[in-house]
Design a protein around this nucleic acid. Structure first.
Lengths: 343, 343
DNA sequence: AAACTGACCGAAAAGGCTTTCGGTCGAATG
DNA sequence: CATTCGACCGAAAGCCTTTTCGGTCAGTTT
């Protein structure tokens, strides 16, 4: 129940309301509600009952004003559409929500002006900290100099080395994928990936190349094949590669979409996956990977973990622990049918 | 620049800092900054310059405390994972962000306890209103009685008729899909859809049935075929239906995933889409629909619009306009290759 | 009986901002 | 010269909560 009013939604009860109903001062009501010592048990009970009947919830604004902390953080995303931001955001929301922290969500839609606008609004609301979530691993310019609160960049690291960033280890992801294919007994491995402009694509390719080199091998065709992040590119690349390199026996794909295309292309060419050829995708996008034929092994970037760690780093920074640099978290392989070891 | 401090991130400047630097009282500083009249131009300039130099941003908490309005709303989602919540959420964030409203994001993860926990936190932060975003169109129990702020339910309507809900018109979506297939000259239309437990599946099937009936037709097999929302089910259903009803010439699928499966099944059975058979999906999930072979015509639920309208309704309610009932917004067809009229 | 103790409660201040109202001062008016 | 009048500025209250500190009162102690 809430304080009766003019017929609108009842207004929220205040401590004064509770105190009046219980016949005590606001100071006493506050102490009773917050479990402070100097209140008689009977008085406390009276206050608590009043609070209960009024559905009293202390005004966090007033409390924040007093304590100098709001218990809120801003989550500034560049692009809610992209499916990479969402898991990061979920992980962060998870880490914060479990505590007593509420999260402001702001979508800048890739617009720097809008980002600054949101930044001002968040600072004016006195958030205790900020997480900036990017949609690509390419480093981004920092928010601006000398902010009054700590900032952590997630997924897309900051260009400024003094900032704190948490992202995924793309080079190592390339290594993981290749070693997985090698462990399936594959030696003629092709890498079909997306837009070469994407840092992630370059890094994974580098990781793949280095790993093969350390085994005395190289990518089929001597290089990675960059294209777009689409099924169509995967199909086309699979066909072309089969024509030019008949002995290819493994595909490391830059996304699950590309992998779906590659699988289609291989099936149409009469190749058996995972019998003749192993295929591994990237992103572990459940809808695509689990519904592929055969089901698709994929690299999972642990994006929720990226979000959670970013939240933890922000917590630490709010508590005064200075830190900086880019923290790269490892990926993991989720094995499904497309890379089953052949019996 | 911010107020110099002990070496930590500088603390945010306050109005008192600005006033001191400009050599005026806080009252005058406030009036100067907010464009009130009773300030000499020269004084105002001095204040504004001080504010600029200190990067002064008025403390929204203090202002909210005073005005009784915070300019914040809560976005309570049941499930961030599901891809239906996200667009709704984006639409709402868009509508609010354009104004001066900041959005608290809370993910209840389908847990009623957690939802209540978040609700209390939001009320304690004195949000001006709430939007509750569901992940299915099935009506849900309301948050609780007599809240001190208005609430709008989005996508998943509230069970309580006095609440305000904005959702999508699933029955009409069924009609749209069928009329589209009819306009392609199809008469033997099958409906392959997902879990019968989902209200959306039932409503769309009902819309499809009624529309066919009004044209003196009925669904192939005399009923809708319910299953799961997966590609596998789509493939299986396509095969089975082709066996039992050789003359089927149109598929209305309950999701783009199902449609992808159906397309696969038809291709493998040697049927030509859109030559022999037209296929329409549901959700207009770009990655699936645009990458299908042929590209998939699909029903778009305009979920961002649902979010935007929910935000508008909430605005109106905050401004005192009482309203209630379920508002159902229309869907739209996005035409691609899979239903091209045959030449 | 006087002084003291401890338990309990309330007045008041602080936090940052806006608004109201009263005060100051130079200029215009009678 | 005395009064009135704007223009401009500052003191103070209020929003809601928490915390500090001082006060009251019954019961103990010497």
């Amino acid at each position: 129940m809430t304080v009766a009013d003019d017929g609108g939604p009842a207004r929220a009860a205040t401590l004064t309301d509770v105190a009046r109903m219980a016949g005590v001062s606001t100071a006493t009501a506050s102490k009773a509600i917050n479990g402070r010592a100097q209140v008689r048990a009977e008085t406390r009970a009276r206050v608590l009952e009043a609070a209960e009947r009024l559905s009293f919830a202390p005004n966090a604004l007033a409390r924040s004003l007093l304590e100098g902390r709001t218990g809120t953080v801003g989550l500034l995303t560049s692009d809610l559409e992209g499916r990479f931001s969402i898991p990061v955001l979920m992980g962060a929301e998870d880490a914060f929500g479990a505590g007593q922290v509420s999260v402001f969500l702001c979508d800048a839609r890739g617009d720097a002006i809008r980002e600054q606008h949101h930044l001002r609004a968040l600072l004016s609301r006195r958030v205790d900290g900020l997480i900036v979530v990017g949609s690509r691993t390419d480093p981004r310019p920092p928010l601006g100099g000398s902010l009054p609160v700590p900032v952590v960049y997630a997924y897309a690291p900051s260009l400024h080395p003094d900032d704190m960033s948490v992202t995924t280890d793309s080079v190592d992801a390339g290594r993981l994928a290749i070693e997985h294919l090698l462990s399936c007994g594959r030696r003629r491995i092709a890498h079909v990936t997306g837009d070469i402009e994407h840092r992630a694509a370059q890094d994974r390719a580098a990781g793949a190349r280095e790993t093969l080199a350390s085994h005395g091998l190289e990518l089929v065709g001597g290089r990675a094949f960059f294209g777009s992040w689409s099924e169509g590119w995967g199909r086309a690349a699979a066909r072309t590669l089969l024509e030019r390199f008949d002995d290819v026996d493994g595909f490391f794909c830059g996304s699950d979409q590309i992998a779906r295309g590659v699988l289609d292309g291989l099936r149409e060419a009469g190749r058996d996956v995972p019998g003749d050829i192993s295929v591994i995708g990237f992103d572990n996008w459940e809808v695509l990977a689990a519904n592929a034929r055969p089901q698709l092994t994929s690299v999972d970037m642990n994006l929720e973990q990226v979000g959670r760690v970013a939240a933890q780093r922000l917590f630490a920074a709010i508590d005064g622990e200075r830190a900086s640099g880019v923290e790269e978290l490892p990926c993991r392989i989720v094995t499904r049918e497309s890379t089953l070891p052949v019996a």
